[in-house]
Each structure stands twice: as C-alpha cells, then as structure tokens.
C-alpha cells in the first residue's frame, strides 16, 4: 500500500530528512520513531502530499502522491497538527458535518459521529464548543474529526500529545481496530505504548539519519 524509496528532504543546506526506504502493506501499522529533528513529521508530510521530496519517490496504492488528486484525498487521511475547527459548532456538530460530507445516507452521519466520539471517550463532551475543551480533549477531538471520514491510509503525527494514559489506551484501541479493519496506519510517535500496541513495522529515523 505504501512504498517509500530513498525519500529525503533538503531545505537549503539543511537536511530535514535523510534518505529512507520503507514499505507498509494493507492492514499494517508503520510506526515512525526517532529523536526530535530526525524528520518524522517531514516524512509524514511527504506521504500526505504537502511536501515534495528532494530525492526518491513515495507511492500510495501504487500511485504517486498528489495531494490535489481527488482519489488520493479520498484514500488518505492525515492529522499533522490539529485540523481547522469552526468556533461556532459543537463537538458533535463538527464530527457529524465531516461524516455528512462523506456519506450517501445523511441519516447515518449522526450515529457514526456518536460512535467515533464514544470510541475516544468524548461522548460526554459532544455539546461543548472547541474553546471549551482542554488541550488533551482538543487533541482527541482532532482525532475524532479525522476518524469520522473514510480512508485507506491514516497518517498521524504524535497522536499521543497531551493525552493521559487512560485516553492514550483509548486511542490505541481505536487505531488497532482501524488497522484490523484493513486500514494502513503511519504513526510518528514517541510513545512506547503506541509502538508496543500498534507496530507491525517500525522505522527508526535515528538510525536512518
């Protein structure tokens, strides 16, 4: 599903990502580990199509990564930083709206949204506005927005940020379920919990750099 061949990123004289090669199959989770500054987020940005590699190629589903391509957008979901949030919508409104735009049956959006929120332990917060959430709840909310849409590949940058151990377990459980359902996950993380519970393959960028 994912093929990365010698992908490296250089900005001026600075190497943001030393050339790396890795693959991940359908239904596998690729965990990307490494010290700060070794290029984890940069690799994720290349896979999400918002950063062009200086060297090498990246392909998803056998096709080149092109962010403007509708098929690619449908296939790949990404959360690298928090997604934009509308200040005038509640948590449930947000997630339902995202689901509504993807589903043919509008009536199915609200139950799907409630399911996603329940999976992440956010069901009690569904009537809150974004500015009423704590930083950890906002992180979970961002994940809920991404999980409310269909995808074949899910790219996440440090989803463990600001989460307590209990919610981290919830996230791990939800991501495992998505992986077992056939999605390919690419997760950059510093969390040993996520690595232990998710990893089918691990790419350590310390070594690569």
């Amino acid at each position: 599903m994912i093929e990365v061949n010698g992908v490296g990123v250089v900005s001026g004289d600075v190497t943001l990502l030393a050339p790396v090669s890795v693959t991940a199959q359908r239904g596998e989770a690729l965990i990307v580990c490494g010290r700060n500054g070794t290029g984890k987020s940069t690799l994720l940005r290349v896979l999400a199509g918002v950063r062009k590699p200086s060297t090498g190629t990246a392909r998803i589903g056998g096709e080149a990564v092109v962010e403007r391509d509708r098929g690619f957008r449908r296939r790949v979901a990404a959360m690298i930083g928090l997604p934009p949030m509308a200040p005038d919508l509640t948590v449930l409104d947000h997630v339902t709206l995202v689901a509504t735009t993807w589903l043919d049956d509008p009536g199915a959006a609200a139950p799907l949204a409630r399911g996603v929120l329940a999976g992440l332990g956010l069901e009690a917060l569904d009537e809150r506005f974004p500015h009423e959430l704590s930083s950890g709840q906002t992180q979970l909310f961002g994940l809920a927005l991404v999980l409310a849409r269909p995808f074949e590949v899910l790219i996440l940058d440090e989803p463990e940020q600001r989460l307590d151990p209990e919610h981290l377990k919830s996230v791990s459980r939800v991501l495992r379920a998505r992986r077992d359902g056939g999605a390919t996950l690419v997760v950059a993380t510093h969390s040993p919990v996520l690595e232990d519970e998710l990893a089918d393959r691990t790419l350590r960028l310390d070594a690569a750099a």
């Binding site: 918002v50 962010e67 790949v76 990404a78 949030m85 509308a86 200040p87 995202v98 991404v146 849409r149």
Partner: peptide
C-alpha cells in the same frame, strides 16, 4: 464564519468529502 473556516480547511489536509 463558515467562509473563513472553509478557507482554513482548503489550506489543510482533506477533511470533508467534497
């Protein structure tokens, strides 16, 4: 507000199915 939200979404990763 919706237009400003749409503008910020269009410069971010795909979120909506349209």
């Amino acid at each position: 507000d919706g237009i400003r939200h749409a503008a910020s979404v269009t410069s971010d990763f795909p979120l909506y199915g349209i």
